[in-house]
Design a protein around this nucleic acid. Sequence first.
DNA 1: CACCTATGGGTAAACGTTTACCCCTTCTCG
DNA 2: CGAGAAGGGGTAAACGTTTACCCATAGGTG
Lengths: 334, 334
Amino acid sequence: MAVTIRDVAERAGVSVATASRVLTGSRNVSPVLAERVNTAARSLGYRHNAVASALRRGRTNTVGMIVPEIGNPFFPSIVEAVERRLQESGRDLFLCDAQQDVTIERRRARALADRQVDGLIIVPVSATESRATLAEAVQRTPVVQVDRYVEDYPADWVGVNDELGVGLAVEHVVSLGATRIAFVSASLDSSSAQQRYAGFERVVKRHGLPGDTPRLLGTFRAEWGRSAALQMLAEQPLPDAVVCGNDEIAIGLLGEFRRCRIRVPEDVLVTGFDDIRFAQLADPPLTTVRQPGEQLAAECIRLLDARMIDRDLPVQRVAIAPSLVVRESTGGSS
Amino acid sequence: MAVTIRDVAERAGVSVATASRVLTGSRNVSPVLAERVNTAARSLGYRHNAVASALRRGRTNTVGMIVPEIGNPFFPSIVEAVERRLQESGRDLFLCDAQQDVTIERRRARALADRQVDGLIIVPVSATESRATLAEAVQRTPVVQVDRYVEDYPADWVGVNDELGVGLAVEHVVSLGATRIAFVSASLDSSSAQQRYAGFERVVKRHGLPGDTPRLLGTFRAEWGRSAALQMLAEQPLPDAVVCGNDEIAIGLLGEFRRCRIRVPEDVLVTGFDDIRFAQLADPPLTTVRQPGEQLAAECIRLLDARMIDRDLPVQRVAIAPSLVVRESTGGSS
DNA sequence: CACCTATGGGTAAACGTTTACCCCTTCTCG
DNA sequence: CGAGAAGGGGTAAACGTTTACCCATAGGTG
């Protein structure tokens, strides 16, 4: 049997109340008793039972987070930043992976809520199919959406302005003289995919560029980038530039172009989105839209804390402006 | 106030015991009462309180996992596989990131143990500095080490035979005629780094190859691969082959070589380790040692379950043989 | 019919904390 | 010197489940 606070109190010759007060620092206790309790705890090897504590207090000092797919390298970067922030306030993060599946996402959300997390950070899998899960979670605990959001549901969100971000990429290749611009991204399930697509169309239209260039929508994976590349190669002529929905797609695309001896940026310009770790290691290094991970994380925790204090706060949606990072895939300087 | 099992029982006109028995299926209850309980629960929107349940039963149906750094793409692949396995038995995974810091690692381990996880899966940050954390965790809950292990401490482990794996890579480049072989990896903090280094030295020695080629030990990061590349370029002549401690390093190295117009595989052969998602997208596609993630995960859960059943089982250490994946960075086909 | 067992139900005691409430002592100040 | 406040201690009641234990009934068996 594990050693409980009762054992500690007994050994220290005080009541459990006093022991608890010393151990949690919830009230002043005379130094001599405090010392006795501490040594008793240490010598017995006392370990706080967080489950019992959570049951009594109704708080766990734990935040849950659900990402669509931990294997997508953009998400770990956010997770790391969030974790660092939480650490500052002594809270722990429990991370779950939805495996791109709204059913699993719902299970995870329930598992976290069942365990009474103090808040939930979620990157919803789908703009529509995740709505029920989000709604249920919001009933139970403070929730903040990051990066992606569920459409037509009022809940806090913080992310980058995707629409604007892709706009930056398009403007950039246009300024380099591209007129026939293709777009390769994921199908419009998630808000990110939707917004990025919208951003592309908006700027293309604004410049009066041809609308018959390829718009290929698959998944946010490198494999999709590869097959999209093959598809474009099959239906010549090649566009002047390919704007990709994220870096993974762009990297897959670059790999296939390379294999087929298409030169980037000489034959075609390529841009990505996210600025993941490997973007600068791609061949050629990838011009991309950077998401400021630290800033997203900071804002996310701020929103979550605000909502924890007041559940009835008006819904907040924070869109951070992304920035373009020019590298060699669009001929940028080294 | 949330709706409790007491409310459900009342609404259904049964005792809390019966309600609990229906809801958990722990004992037979007459169909008519069961139905009443279920409808009552549904209509009240009853939600199981996992914290209270955990306190009473002493089990949480939750497994904790700690990885050194979620940003290292090898770990997410293991996490995904582990999560899929756990799902089959209806358990949830709580994932924590140690940020490559044994202090944080300890905090995470304690946080998980405090929350009474039923078991802990850990990839220890350090072969020596993580020992105390591991020892403490083992006292509290079943633990399995994956991939890396703590030295001189008897605890279950499952991983790949790193020593053998690097051996495969060295044998491969030797068979292609390389005699001057460099090794770029991480400093010998972790068991992986140690074993991989040992594998390199063993095979190099066995073939009587020169021992004065570079052995550069830094971190498991791409940036280190870059600077190692620069270092080798500074002290000509270039080796015939560079065997890297993981894929990230190799990818960084490839990037720098490319920038400096060193051709791979014509001027120098390069190999990696892990076979992460990006290995085949590198330029050129990377020859590497594949870690069988699914198999690791399966074995890991098997060990954990065995240990949960019997804490006094003899310690098990399962080393899985890795396999070499030949790609173009050593002139491989395709 | 007497007895034994199986079945399904309820009561209430845990699980380990935290904290509302109460009490006693000591100090402050008019 | 008395009233009031402040400080520090204890008792015991929560928190929401699960389950050991008990009881009543029904059915089976000699």
